[in-house]
Amino acid sequence: MNFFLKTLVAGAISLASAGFAVAGDQIVVATDTNFKPFSYRNEDGNYVGYDVDIWNEIGKRIGVEYELRPMDFNGIIPGIQSGNIDVAVAAMSITSKREEVIDFSYPYYKAGITIMVRADEDGVKELGDLSGKVIATKQGTSTVPFLKENTEAGKVAPKEVKEFPNITDAFLELRAGGADAVMFDLPPLQDYAATVGKDAVKLVGPLYLGHFYGIGMPKGSELRKKINVALLEMQESGKLNELHNKWFGSDSR
């Protein structure tokens, strides 16, 4: 958890306070349930995952009733801006562009982007090797501007970038031969390669665009301070490490 403490010491985001919208006595908490192991529906039909556990713990600590609302990632930021969503716990990267339109909590997870190819692919070792190839990813995520910027900089020249509403569709496209690689956040790729895609796909290359996930909310939300305090309490008590160990098997960040 060293990155967490260093981030706080280096410069915490100001804790502005204002009102927030509620649905009756409940706040609306959005999550992207197509992002295993952060949030997904299990075989029993229940929503589970690291993000779900994180928010369940925060909700108890700050004493709010909430409706967990599954939705496509693309609709989350517009939903926050419109006031239809009070909180979003959706493996959302903290970026300067997003910070212009919504507020974020302190970071709770360090991530990055990597490459997944079919197991028999030996010609792709890094980003530049994807020139002339078809790359699949999830629309509205950090990978899209990353690929655009690197294409404009001449670091890669993909034949096509296919954007899908769900990352599982990108996985299927790779397996079916419609894409040469999937480029996306490490955790869901790592999970897929170790489970459903075992022996059929593999991860290659370094970790690109190291970034942090934060909890999103409307500008000026009074929930921000409460959520940040809860995250700090969870870090200090070891609860964050406990949840990380549950879903990722290690307390390393």
Rank of each mutant, 00 (worst) to 15 (best):
V124M: 12
M217D: 09
V117M: 08
G83L: 10
E173W: 03
I77R: 09
F248H: 07
N245W: 09
T141V: 14
L243I: 15
P187F: 09
A230N: 05
A176V: 07
P145F: 09
M1D: 05
P218L: 03
S17M: 07
D122R: 08
G112N: 14
G132W: 09
G220T: 02
N245F: 09
D32R: 00
D191M: 02
S250I: 06
N2M: 00
E121M: 08
K36R: 13
A23R: 14
E65M: 12
A91T: 06
T114L: 00
G214K: 00
S221C: 13
L174T: 13
D72P: 11
S14I: 04
R69V: 08
D51Q: 08
V101G: 10
R175F: 11
V124F: 07
L240F: 02
G140I: 03
A91C: 02
L240D: 03
Q139M: 13
P165L: 05
F164T: 07
K225V: 04
F184C: 04
V182A: 11
A194I: 01
K159Y: 14
G177I: 06
W247N: 06
P145A: 07
G24F: 00
F4H: 02
V161I: 15
V48I: 15
Y50H: 12
F184V: 02
D86Y: 02
K219I: 09
A91F: 02
L174W: 13
M116P: 04
S93L: 01
E67P: 01
K219D: 09
V9P: 00
I227N: 01
V89Y: 02
K138H: 07
P206C: 00
A157M: 12
Y192R: 03
D251A: 15
S221L: 06
I215D: 03
E160P: 03
R98S: 11
I54A: 06
Y50C: 09
N46H: 12
E242K: 13
L147Q: 07
L8T: 07
E121D: 14
R224V: 01
Q235T: 11
P218K: 06
G63I: 09
K155R: 15
E152C: 01
E222P: 05
L127M: 10
Y47C: 00
M183S: 09
V134Q: 12
D44C: 00
K133G: 05
K97H: 04
A230F: 01
Q81M: 15
K148Q: 14
K239M: 14
P158V: 11
L207A: 00
D191P: 00
E160K: 13
G83F: 10
L203K: 07
L147K: 06
A90P: 03
L243P: 02
K36A: 15
T151L: 08
L15S: 12
Y40I: 08
G214I: 01
K138G: 02
G11F: 08
L203A: 08
A12N: 10
E152F: 08
V9I: 15
S96C: 00
L240M: 12
I77A: 10
S17D: 15
E100P: 04
A153S: 14
G205E: 07
L68S: 11
D199R: 09
G63A: 14
V29P: 02
V64A: 04
L172P: 00
A16G: 10
M234P: 04
P206H: 01
R41C: 08
T141M: 12
I167Y: 01
N56R: 14
S14Q: 10
P107L: 08
N241W: 01
P107S: 13
N34Y: 11
L68N: 10
Y106R: 08
M92P: 02
A30N: 12
Y108F: 11
M71W: 05
N2T: 03
